[in-house]
Nucleic acid binder design. Sequence first.
DNA 1: GTGAGATTGTTGCGTGTGCAACAGTTGCAG
DNA 2: CTGCAACTGTTGCACACGCAACAATCTCAC
Lengths: 161, 161
Amino acid sequence: MSFNRPQLDPTPSALAQHQYRLLHDIYIQLDAADRAVLSQFDLTPSQYTLLALLNRDEGQRLITLADRLLVARSTVTRLIDQMEQRGLVQRVDDPEDRRAQRVILTLVGDNLLRQALAAHQESLSQRFDQLDETEQNHIVTILTTMRDSLQVYVDRVKNPA
Amino acid sequence: MSFNRPQLDPTPSALAQHQYRLLHDIYIQLDAADRAVLSQFDLTPSQYTLLALLNRDEGQRLITLADRLLVARSTVTRLIDQMEQRGLVQRVDDPEDRRAQRVILTLVGDNLLRQALAAHQESLSQRFDQLDETEQNHIVTILTTMRDSLQVYVDRVKNPA
DNA sequence: GTGAGATTGTTGCGTGTGCAACAGTTGCAG
DNA sequence: CTGCAACTGTTGCACACGCAACAATCTCAC
């Protein structure tokens, strides 16, 4: 509740600060609600996102998963450890590269993910249904621009060539 | 909008999912960049946000800080512990409530915060300067709506009366 | 006034995550 | 072919955070 009304301060830094704080507060709320929903299935948001990635493309390498999740490789190792022990996923040696391993969903994991996906999407819809569809489409457009523009910044910082 | 169907899947759940993922990715990138900037001052994003809160209103209770930061009380206890040891802030007993403590910025903390604020705002401006000002104002409006609408959802879930 | 319940801050414990170091493997320059 | 650099995944370590339990204090109904 830091900014209850848009201030008309025209300086760029205040504007950026304002967007920043809004995004932060929104993220915190989304994350808390996610945890509540997913705890029904004994899943953390990370585990859920990882399963969803595996559902989209089976047999990805751990390092690919780490890149897509934007987390460290060791984190993926441990996430897969947990879920393999629960029988949700399975490691498979990559026949073409003996360093690498592919991760696939088991039947149990697939079933659990289906339920979690349904519950999560239902929850998301409820969370966003205060906004009408036109507004939501607008948000998607703008957020896409923002994400891509941030990506440009990150790349520029990482590789100043 | 009903006569011109968008190409993407128009179901509300997919739309919500899309917004969700965008917000998640944006947050991760913002957070990583924050850590990079603030590490120059030996500050984590949490410490920085806490200092900024103290700068706006001096002498807040720890529980107030926890509520505004959206973190657990124990987290604030430990953040203040660290920063008090570094001489950035100071605990002061609340004369009106012997359970409570007020937290104030020291001169050292105030100076450090000023530098960190400047660097952070500069960095934020760079990150967002790919978007023109009209667009940024638009984003602020929409994000404000979204945050408030999410708050309505959270309150409804917490207190279903 | 008194006692029960709420509130404030602290501490112990468990967990999630990044970083750095490591072994095993691959690939490429020479 | 050789040797060295890069890559893949794992592990140890450190740290940040939430939750639950706790003592001290306040509040309010009676």
